[in-house]
């Protein structure tokens, strides 16, 4: 894992040196206990905990960019690890009664570690709030990374279905209307075929950003499949949703999209439809929305022909 070491080389080195120093100190001051008096239960318990902490540290460093929050969490976990390691060293090395610093080495870092960890988690929480603000219009109330689409940073069909289910319940209890918009890019297969799949993927990403800019605070955009998107609009009547849908189609039509390689201008357009939820389940609502889109596509096809 080169990135792990490149980013956090100093931190890992410090941890290694400090734990090594602690062990050396133990070995130089005391003498080894005979095998017969080793307390295996303590060894497994303390050693296992130290190992797990090491794994946590690894996962933490692997999953987070460097920064203040990472430093705090690392320092906290590092202190806990050190304290457990000293505890473990105690099991193998008998200290003379005149030495009292070993108790300090064992117990001192523990509370410090917990305080640092608490601080770290608190700031992590603040950081998460900041990130959530950036996820506006892309997720609501519920996070499940497994349901996220890998191409566009949006929730996929499963996430969408859960969200519709939740929104329907909420709409019923609050006696508020709920509407959905479906958006489908016209002739998307032509872009894929003529300009390649990479270009098609980029079109999807650009459209995603464009639509996100056009949404209100509480609207949610998800990618249903392929070039088809669905927007959940709580507290919205069908007529309002239809107006938003129309605006979205217009904004896509006016987008001056240019291809990656040649910078060629591609004229994009999308078909959008809106429906309001009646007394029905998420599946049923989605199916009705999809049927309406199919009709809309057919009519536009006839009109162009």
């Amino acid at each position: 894992m080169p990135p792990l070491f490149a980013l956090h080389r100093m931190k890992l080195l410090t941890l290694l040196l400090v734990s090594n120093f602690g062990l050396m100190l133990h070995l130089s001051a005391g003498d080894m206990k005979p095998l017969s008096v080793w307390d295996w239960l303590d060894i497994v318990g303390e050693g296992g905990s130290a190992m797990l902490l090491l794994i946590w540290i690894g996962l933490l460093l692997k999953s987070r960019p460097a920064g203040r929050v990472t430093d705090l969490l690392f320092a906290g976990l590092g202190c806990l690890f050190f304290s457990l390691l000293m505890d473990l060293a105690d099991e193998f090395v008998r200290m003379p009664d005149s030495v009292s610093w070993d108790a300090w080495l064992e117990s001192g870092p523990m509370p410090v570690g917990f305080i640092l960890l608490t601080l770290g988690i608190y700031h992590w929480h603040r950081e998460q709030l900041a990130i959530s603000a950036q996820m506006r219009n892309r997720e609501r109330l519920y996070r499940e990374h497994l349901h996220f689409d890998t191409l566009t940073p949006l929730g996929g069909a499963t996430y969408l279905k859960n969200q519709i289910e939740m929104s329907i319940k909420q709409a019923v209890t609050e006696r508020q209307p709920l509407s959905l918009i479906m958006l489908d890019i016209d002739a998307f297969s032509v872009i894929n075929r003529d300009y390649g799949q990479a270009e098609g993927d980029r079109v999807l990403q650009v459209i995603t950003q464009l639509v996100l800019l056009n949404l209100r605070e509480h609207d949610l955009l998800c990618r249903l499949a392929g070039d088809r998107f669905v927007i959940v609009l709580p507290n919205t009547l069908e007529s309002q949703a239809a107006a938003i849908a129309h605006d979205l189609a217009l904004s896509i039509k006016h987008l001056a999209y240019r291809t990656i390689l040649q910078g060629e201008r591609l004229a994009l357009s999308a078909t959008t439809v809106a429906v309001m939820a009646r007394q029905e389940g998420a599946e049923c609502l989605l199916e009705r929305l999809n049927t309406r889109l199919a009709h809309a596509k057919q009519t536009s096809l006839f009109r162009s022909a």
């Binding site: 249903l224 392929g226 199919a294």
Partner: peptide, 13 residues
């Protein structure tokens, strides 16, 4: 299947 939407988009309704 539970990914019926893929059929809608790539085949038809």
């Amino acid at each position: 299947p539970d990914y019926i939407e893929q059929y809608w988009v790539h085949l038809s309704e």
